[in-house]
Design a protein around this nucleic acid. Structure first.
Length: 431
RNA sequence: UCCGCAGUAGCUCAAUGGUGGAGCAUCCGGCUGUUAACCGGAGGGUUGCAAGUUCGAGUCUUGCCUGCGGAGCCA
C-alpha cells in the first residue's frame, strides 16, 4: 500500500493509498460522513457511506475529534465538490491518538489567545501559507548570493560590545570575561569577511532589547547582510534592487497558492523590477513638505514619514545620502558634502517601512578613529575592526535586510509577529 | 518610558444602573453529498484584582494587574 502526501494525490487517482495526518474537521449527514484530514501538504476530504464502508470503520470515526492523529486508507477520486478537487473513499482508519478538547475551533480567535498556543496555531492553513512564503524568501535569499559567488559568513551571536553603539542590547555573563551581549548586527564581522573573501553574506538571528511595541518590531529577528569589497554606494543600491527583484519574483513564481490563501493583492509585488526609484534624503524631505507634513531637515524619518514617502511610489523606493549625524559611525561621508553619509534605506510600499538599511563604509583609518571618538565608543573594542583599515583598506559597502519585515510586506500582514514561528516580543517569551 | 484602548463561559462576542445571554468547542439525539454543514437538547460563570458610590454595579468612580495599538528606537 503506497503512502503518499495530499499534495501528490493528483497522480494517484483511482489508486488505493494511505494518508497519515490529523483530523482538520468532520461533518456528518447521518449515513454519509465527511472527514477532513490534513497532512501538512494539504487537506483531503474523506467520505464514508454507511453500508458501503465497514460498520467497524464507520463507528470508529465517531471517536475522532479535531487534530486527532490517524492514517486513512482509501481510493482516490476526482470530485469537484471536495476542497482541493480530490477526495478519498475511505476503506480503513487507523487511529494514532484521540485529541481531547483542541483549543482552536473553526471560528474566529484573537491574536493574543492564538499566540499563547502558537505551537498549535502553526497547524492552521493561514500560518502554513505564511511559513511557506517565509521559507521561499529565505531560500531565494541564499540562492541569490550563492549564485553570485558570495560566501556565507556566520557572525558570532555573543559579542563583546555594541556594533553601532546606539541600540539597547541583551546582556549576559560570559564566564570570567565579564559581560557579553547578544549581537544586534553581524555587519562588522561581515566587513572582515569581505576583506578576506571578497563578497560575503551574514545570515542569522539578531537581538534588540529596545522596548518597542509596534507591528514592525520583534526582540529577536533574522537579518541577511551582504558585504562586498570594492563596492561603492551605487553598486550597493544596484545589488539591493536586483536582490529584491529576485526575492519577490521567486515568491510570485513559486508560491502563488500561498499568496492567494493570504488574499494578497500582488499588484505592487509585480512592480518590483530593476531599476527601483532612487531619491536623496533631501528629495524625500521635499516630498514630505510638499504633502504638507511638518519635517525639519536633519531629523530621521519616523514610521509615518516613511509611509508618506513610500506612497509616492508604486514599488519600493531607495532613499540615499542621509545626514551623517543620524547615521552609524562606520558610514562613509559623502565627498561632495561632508554633512551627508553614503547611506541608503529601502522603504517598502503600502506602509511597510524600512526593509533594508545599508551604506558604503568608512575605509579611512583616521576618519574612522575620529568617528569612534565622536560617538563616544570605546576604541579598544574596535581595534580589530580598525585593523581592517590598517591592512589593505578598500572601498566597500553592504546592507542588511530584515527577513520578518520582508515576509510581512510580501504576505501583506498586519504585524511581523506572524512571520516567524515563535516570535519574541517585549511581553512574550513563550511558547 | 510616555499617550490611547480593552479585559464577561475553553474561544469569539452581546447584555439602558434592575433575574448575566448567543455562536463555536464538548456531551446526547436527528439527518445519504457536507463545504466554518445543518436541526433539537444538555453541561459550562468569583464579569481581571481590590476598594468605593448606590436600595441595587458586568455597567459609574479610584487604584492596581494583564494585554492591544501608537510614539521614541530601528530591520
Amino acid at each position: 500500500m503506497a503512502r503518499v502526501y495530499i499534495e501528490d494525490l493528483r497522480n494517484h487517482v483511482g489508486e488505493e493509498v494511505t494518508i497519515h495526518g490529523w483530523v482538520y474537521n468532520k461533518r456528518s449527514s447521518g449515513k454519509v460522513r465527511f472527514l477532513v484530514v490534513r497532512d501538512g501538504t494539504g487537506i483531503l476530504q474523506c467520505v464514508m457511506v454507511k453500508g458501503v464502508v465497514s460498520e467497524e470503520v464507520f463507528n470508529h470515526s465517531d471517536a475522532l475529534t479535531q487534530e486527532s492523529s490517524l492514517a486513512v486508507t482509501g481510493k482516490v477520486k476526482k470530485d469537484d465538490r471536495a476542497p482541493g478537487g480530490y477526495e478519498m473513499e475511505l476503506s480503513n482508519i487507523r487511529i494514532y491518538q484521540i485529541a481531547r478538547d483542541y483549543p482552536i475551533t473553526p471560528k474566529e480567535h484573537g491574536t493574543d489567545f492564538l499566540m499563547d498556543i502558537r505551537h498549535l496555531w502553526l497547524r492552521s492553513a493561514r500560518q502554513h501559507a505564511i511559513l511557506r512564503v517565509r521559507h521561499e524568501i529565505i531560500k531565494s535569499i541564499r540562492e541569490f548570493f550563492d549564485n553570485r559567488g558570495f560566501t556565507l559568513l556566520d557572525a558570532p551571536i555573543f559579542t563583546p560590545a555594541a556594533c553601532e553603539g546606539t541600540s539597547t542590547l541583551f546582556e549576559t555573563e560570559y564566564f570570567d570575561l565579564g559581560k557579553a551581549y547578544l549581537t544586534q548586527s553581524g555587519q562588522l564581522y561581515g566587513e572582515a569577511g569581505a576583506m578576506a573573501l571578497g563578497k560575503v553574506y551574514v545570515f542569522g538571528p539578531t537581538f534588540r532589547a529596545e522596548k518597542s511595541k509596534t507591528r514592525r518590531h520583534l526582540t529577536e529577528f533574522w537579518m541577511v547582510e551582504p558585504e562586498v569589497a570594492f563596492n561603492d554606494l551605487n553598486d550597493n543600491m544596484e545589488l539591493a534592487e536586483e536582490f529584491l527583484e529576485h526575492i519577490v519574483s521567486s515568491v510570485l513564481k513559486n508560491r502563488p497558492k500561498e499568496l492567494l490563501a493570504l488574499e494578497r493583492n500582488t499588484a505592487f509585488l509585480e512592480n518590483v523590477k530593476k531599476p527601483l526609484p532612487k531619491i536623496s534624503y533631501s528629495e524625500a524631505v521635499e516630498i514630505l513638505k510638499k504633502k504638507g507634513h511638518a519635517f525639519e531637515w536633519g531629523n530621521d524619518f519616523g514610521g509615518t514619514d516613511e509611509t508618506v514617502i513610500s506612497e509616492e511610489f508604486d514599488r519600493p523606493v531607495i532613499v540615499h545620502r542621509y545626514p551623517s549625524q543620524i547615521k552609524a559611525f562606520y558610514m562613509k561621508r559623502d565627498p561632495q558634502n561632508k554633512d551627508l553619509a553614503l547611506a541608503m534605506d529601502v522603504l517598502a510600499p503600502e506602509g511597510y517601512g524600512e526593509i533594508i538599511g545599508g551604506s558604503q563604509r568608512e575605509d579611512d583609518y583616521d576618519m574612522l578613529v575620529q568617528r569612534i571618538k565622536e560617538h563616544d565608543l570605546p576604541q579598544s573594542a574596535f581595534e580589530w575592526y580598525l585593523d581592517l583599515r590598517r591592512y589593505g583598506s578598500v572601498p566597500h559597502a553592504g546592507f542588511g535586510l530584515g527577513v520578518e519585515r520582508t515576509v510581512s510586506w510580501i504576505c501583506g500582514l498586519e504585524h511581523v509577529r506572524e512571520t516567524i514561528p515563535f516570535p519574541r516580543m517585549i511581553y512574550r517569551l513563550t511558547p
